[in-house]
Nucleic acid binder design. Structure first.
Lengths: 197, 197
DNA sequence: TGGATACTGTAACGGTCGTAACAAAATCGT
DNA sequence: ACGATTTTGTTACGACCGTTACAGTATCCA
């Protein structure tokens, strides 16, 4: 049929992910990408379309690997309450140990993407929904098992935890201090332990 | 001595603020700025230095007008608890009515600024501290007056509210839905009303 | 009135941006 | 072995980037 590809798709996309993750969409040039991915401009355009299409592809890859992986891993936890706790503490741990201050590609993109780019905005909105739904499932599970009081509205609480996830990621960019991030979540987690009223 | 300035400093800085607020630091070109500010390139460089210096100036102006103004206005409230409530609800209202999806310049910048730009990063960190300290003062005031239970750790709660402020601003960028944003804060505000344990 | 001084406008600098034309090279089915 | 097909490397496009030289202009103090 035709000449086969000389580069590894997975490696190239991982390299592109690293670029966009560190510098964002605008600040990453196509030259940065080609150098880091080890391919030439025309190969990039032939394989992935333009820069924005590559970004969208990388964003989906990121969500799959770093968001859904974590959600699925947490949901293997038998306790909904401990799943929430572990999720948040792992998030804090990652945020603090994040040497290159990359943060989270989804959160970074939520702010960087132009408000007029409806396609990417909706993609990002759907990722936020997935996080919200994860918390909602955990909360309902915890209430069914009795470990979380029924006085808590799981819909509101899920949104509340989503807000904290986003807040942690933003705060960690300029103030990656453990005391700050742990203080942020402690009241929310404590509320799950309150006795029924 | 010399020829006086032909443009209004305040108007020019407001125009620059609007540019950076809508598009961010990178995506705003010097040509965008000169056109919107109504001045020429050399005048811009003569008056404000380079683009980054102008951005820093605009950021300080933004903090003064949109962050400190609100904090000071809220602190005129005799009740610490109601100051917190009003602050958050006003934030939500602004986020929903934000036609151009500008969000908050400070939060936007917290994510956009390069992690290696220590000067701007520290400026932004100091703004986050100011917000945290505002909440801390409100909480302490509320506890002294007895309207907030003493079982609440004001340091943690202040960080918690800061996290929510940041989370609201991020979420509103892609999901400016009232139900979402109000759900985010409701559990945190409800906690202030809990009876002592 | 005449410098001294600061601002304005025009024009352009070198550099980088995202993207594409084009030909050479490598693989396939036949 | 050949023609069809796809990827690769070279090169360069026009546009825009942040920034500045320079000459012209307006204002103040003397």
């Amino acid at each position: 049929m035709a000449r086969p590809r000389a580069f590894d798709d997975d490696k190239a996309l991982d390299a592109a992910m690293e670029c966009f993750w560190r510098r964002g969409l605008e600040a990453t040039s196509v030259r940065d990408l080609t150098m880091e991915m080890g391919i030439n401009g025309p190969s990039l355009y032939n394989a992935y379309g333009d820069k924005r299409a590559l970004f969208a592809r990388v964003l989906a890859r990121y969500a799959e690997r770093w968001m859904r992986e974590r959600i699925e891993r947490m949901e293997r936890d038998s306790s909904g309450k401990s799943a929430i706790r572990t999720f948040l503490h792992e998030l804090i741990e990652r945020s603090i140990k994040d040497e290159h201050r990359r943060g989270c590609l989804i959160v970074n993109s939520a702010l960087e993407i132009s408000p007029h780019d409806n396609e990417l905005r909706e993609v990002i909105a759907s990722y936020l929904c997935e996080i919200e739904m994860f918390f909602l499932r955990c909360l309902k599970r915890g209430q069914e098992s009795g470990e979380i009081g029924s006085h808590i509205d799981p819909r509101d609480a899920a949104r509340h935890f989503l807000g904290l996830v986003l807040g942690i990621r933003v705060a960690a960019r300029s103030r990656p201090e453990r005391a700050l991030l742990e203080g942020m979540v402690r009241p929310a987690l404590a509320q799950l332990d309150f006795p029924l009223h």
